[in-house]
């Protein structure tokens, strides 16, 4: 374990990962500072989801170092649990617990992981539900909510653990077009409050207005990273130019 300057939240050095023979992450170096909002884009299979899933060790990297809030991720279960408490994650398919009510979805981890008394945890859950504007659905089950509502619940569920970093894995890709905005609005609000965020997304409007860094990945490598203005207007690499011309042409 090493201590790092206060403002570096995530540090990845020379990270490699393989799925069997498939080299999915190649020599990833990435520093994320407190309050930074990073958008990661790239074609499917480029390793962007795997990259952020390594940060809370849903995937295990095989070479290199990943340090989150001063804790290095190794096979040490204690460190993994600590990191997962500090890092929130929002999934493409929401992954709410279908057998629990919305309120129970939110309160479960605070009660059993943070050991907060049930009453307090539920009160806290309600304040987060109000923040994502969905408090009146607290007693319903996930299956009774629209996709956009479910994703907002998923964001609130992560926030209940009071994380210092939020990871978003294509949070709007499974949503109907009419529901994307309500989820992005919540994410923009979070960004404005200073949350450190890493978002895998193809919402380029969100990237332009919210991100302070955009990373483009392909073939398991970081091809190019820059602030949004320069990334979209003066991409340096031909691969980036091609990708941008394809996703922005319509």
């Amino acid at each position: 374990m090493t201590t790092q300057p206060q403002d570096t939240v995530i540090s990845m050095q020379g990270v490699h990962k393989w799925f069997g023979d498939f080299h999915v992450l190649k020599n990833i170096d990435l520093e994320v500072k407190q309050g930074e909002r990073i958008v990661i884009c790239g074609p499917s299979g480029s390793g962007k989801s795997t990259l952020i899933r390594c940060i809370n060790r849903l995937e295990e990297h095989q070479r290199g170092r990943i340090v989150v809030n001063g804790t290095e991720l190794t096979s040490d279960t204690k460190n993994i649990e600590k990191t997962r408490r500090d890092v929130g994650m929002v999934f493409q398919h929401f992954n709410l617990f279908p057998h629990l009510t919305i309120l129970e979805n939110l309160a479960l981890a605070p009660i059993w992981v943070r050991k907060i008394p049930r009453k307090e945890a539920e009160a806290m859950a309600m304040t987060y539900l109000e923040r994502v504007d969905i408090a009146e659905q607290a007693g319903k089950y996930p299956g009774q909510l629209s996709g956009g509502q479910q994703q907002r619940v998923a964001i609130a569920r992560s926030l209940c653990m009071n994380p210092s970093v939020m990871l978003f894995d294509e949070p709007t890709s499974a949503l109907d077009p009419e529901m994307i905005k309500e989820v992005l609005d919540v994410m923009v609000e979070l960004a404005e409050e200073g949350m450190t965020m890493l978002c895998v997304t193809h919402e380029m409007g969100f990237a332009k207005s919210v991100a302070n860094r955009v990373i483009f990945m392909d073939f398991g490598e970081i091809v190019e990273q820059n602030d949004p203005h320069n990334f979209f207007n003066n991409p340096k690499m031909d691969r980036t130019q091609l990708f941008l011309s394809q996703i922005l042409s319509h």
Binding site: N56, L58, E81, R84, R85, V87, G88, M89, F91, H93, N95, L96, F97, L108, A109, W112, V113, R157, S158, M161
Partner: peptide
């Protein structure tokens, strides 16, 4: 994905088994 969501929230193995 249910296991992953539980893990991402920091729930331990047996919590995940019993509650999820």
């Amino acid at each position: 994905s249910q296991h992953e969501a539980a893990a991402a929230l920091g729930l331990r193995g047996w919590h995940t088994t019993v509650f999820i």
